[in-house]
Simulated scan of single mutants.
Amino acid sequence: MFCKYGHTDVEGYTVADWAGSVTDKRSTFGYFTFVGGNLVTWRSKKQKVVSRYSAEAEYCGMAPVVCELLRLKRLLRDLGFGPQKPMDLYCDNKAAIAVAHNPVQHDRTKHMEVD
């Protein structure tokens, strides 16, 4: 059941478990998205590659969330309910946040650009 909170803000939350798989050391990421304060999508999946460090696992886990947020934004626009403010993506890893905010660090993450 959806509740009316008076807005159509789109938010995403993501988390990754770095090298959480005991057998192959691949990370698992998960995310969930909210539209207007209501949970609309969620997913958990093992990553295709082995991450070298936790920030890489988090950063690679953010890519599918961004795609999902953009899909939701287009869907809302098509329905005539465009978001009232920019979409927010929340991540709990300080290193991944630093990479996203600092263009200088992008040189150190070229191997992640494929994602």
Rank of each mutant, 00 (worst) to 15 (best):
residue 32 F to I: 02
residue 74 R to E: 14
residue 49 V to P: 04
residue 4 K to R: 11
residue 37 G to Q: 02
residue 63 A to N: 08
residue 93 N to M: 06
residue 8 T to P: 00
residue 67 C to R: 11
residue 55 A to Q: 11
residue 12 G to L: 02
residue 61 G to A: 05
residue 71 R to E: 12
residue 106 H to R: 12
residue 21 S to C: 13
residue 113 E to P: 00
residue 33 T to E: 06
residue 9 D to N: 13
residue 16 A to F: 07
residue 62 M to F: 04
residue 94 K to F: 05
residue 44 S to Y: 14
residue 98 A to S: 14
residue 78 D to Y: 03
residue 93 N to H: 03
residue 61 G to E: 03
residue 3 C to I: 02
residue 55 A to V: 09
residue 108 R to T: 03
residue 10 V to F: 01
residue 72 L to E: 10
residue 59 Y to C: 09
residue 9 D to V: 11
residue 106 H to W: 14
residue 107 D to V: 12
residue 53 Y to M: 13
residue 54 S to Y: 02
residue 83 P to D: 04
residue 104 V to N: 10
residue 44 S to F: 12
residue 32 F to E: 00
residue 25 K to R: 15
residue 115 D to A: 13
residue 14 T to H: 10
residue 70 L to I: 12
residue 112 M to K: 06
residue 9 D to W: 12
residue 19 A to V: 02
residue 25 K to G: 05
residue 38 N to D: 02
residue 55 A to L: 07
residue 58 E to D: 09
residue 50 V to I: 12
residue 69 L to T: 01
residue 69 L to G: 01
residue 92 D to G: 03
residue 52 R to E: 11
residue 20 G to K: 04
residue 70 L to K: 15
residue 67 C to I: 01
residue 70 L to V: 12
residue 54 S to N: 07
residue 111 H to V: 11
residue 107 D to P: 10
residue 8 T to C: 12
residue 23 T to H: 07
residue 109 T to D: 13
residue 72 L to N: 10
residue 63 A to F: 11
residue 46 K to G: 00
residue 107 D to Q: 15
residue 92 D to A: 09
residue 56 E to L: 08
residue 34 F to I: 06
residue 22 V to Y: 00
